[in-house]
């Protein structure tokens, strides 16, 4: 079903919603702890992500956005509701690069290929191709500690792509980077998303980042996390994070976000 992506249509175009979703989250609840004394983290989340769509999940701390991403990644099970992914197991990127320090950059990617079943003879060339894609050609033999923070996240992106999934889950992947590097990586991610026709579910607490990247921003309320509001963004890509369009919408969303946060101080 997810392979039904049409090549004629740009992933950035808006008419993506009429196809079967790449990620279908239906009435998902998640609680932690014993029944009775449980903390309700996610409350009836329903969200479809269309193939090729770029969605950011936005929320303050405690909104369960990372928990939701873990559920979609299959690292944890929902307490109620269902999550359907018709395709391959999704790839997940974290705030920390999570690369294996005992392997070189290239070997990290080759390990993902190996675990995904790529034949040995093809791994090296495929790893080189992916490094090329994130503009790190020549970094195959570099040790992880020899790379800068931005380069590590790009290797992590290449490794995620090596899993061969159309769905990429990103858990605040650029939060630990400096602003200049983050800006460049936004451009790179936008380019790769469009080129590779990826479906991206991107978690962040940074409103401008959410608006800079996404076709759709989903605001979650906190404790428990619920879908509070959604915005569809038609600004052309690649956007500039400083642009007026991004700024205007960011102000609107920030106001909404502050409203959500304020409710928690009132009782």
């Amino acid at each position: 079903m997810t392979t039904a992506l049409t090549t004629s249509e740009s992933a950035a175009s808006v008419g993506v919603l009429d196809r079967a979703p790449a990620v279908r989250i239906s009435h998902v609840h998640k609680s932690f702890g014993r029944p009775g004394a449980a903390t309700h983290v996610l409350d009836d989340i329903t969200l479809d992500v269309a193939p090729g769509e770029f969605v950011t999940l936005l929320g303050a701390s405690g909104c369960g956005k990372s928990t939701l991403l873990n559920l979609v990644a299959g690292l944890d099970k929902p307490s109620a509701g269902s999550i359907e992914l018709p395709g391959h197991r999704p790839a997940l990127m974290f705030q920390e690069h999570a690369l294996f320090p005992w392997l070189t950059a290239g070997k990290n990617i080759e390990l993902a290929l190996r675990l995904g079943g790529t034949p040995k003879a093809e791994r090296r060339a495929e790893a080189e191709r992916l490094l090329d894609l994130v503009r790190l050609n020549g970094a195959h033999g570099k040790r992880v500690h020899e790379l800068s923070g931005g380069m590590r996240q790009r290797v992590a992106l290449a490794r995620a792509l090596a899993q061969g999934s159309d769905v990429l889950l990103m858990d605040e992947p650029f939060a630990a980077l400096d602003a200049i590097t983050r800006d460049v990586l936004h451009d790179e991610l936008t380019r790769i998303w469009a080129e590779q026709k990826l479906t991206v579910l991107f978690v962040t607490h940074n409103v401008r980042e959410a608006v800079r990247l996404a076709q759709r921003v989903v605001l979650l309320s906190s404790r428990p996390g619920r879908v509070a509001k959604e915005w569809r963004i038609d600004l052309p890509q690649p956007r500039r994070i400083e642009s007026a369009g991004v700024a205007d919408l960011s102000i609107e969303i920030t106001d909404e976000l502050r409203g959500e946060i304020r409710r928690h101080g009132q009782h």
Binding site: W231, L235, P236, P238, G245, V246
Partner: peptide, 12 residues
Amino acid sequence: MASTDTTPSPVL
């Protein structure tokens, strides 16, 4: 809901 940008950002 939707926002339209009247001054498109310079194409990067």
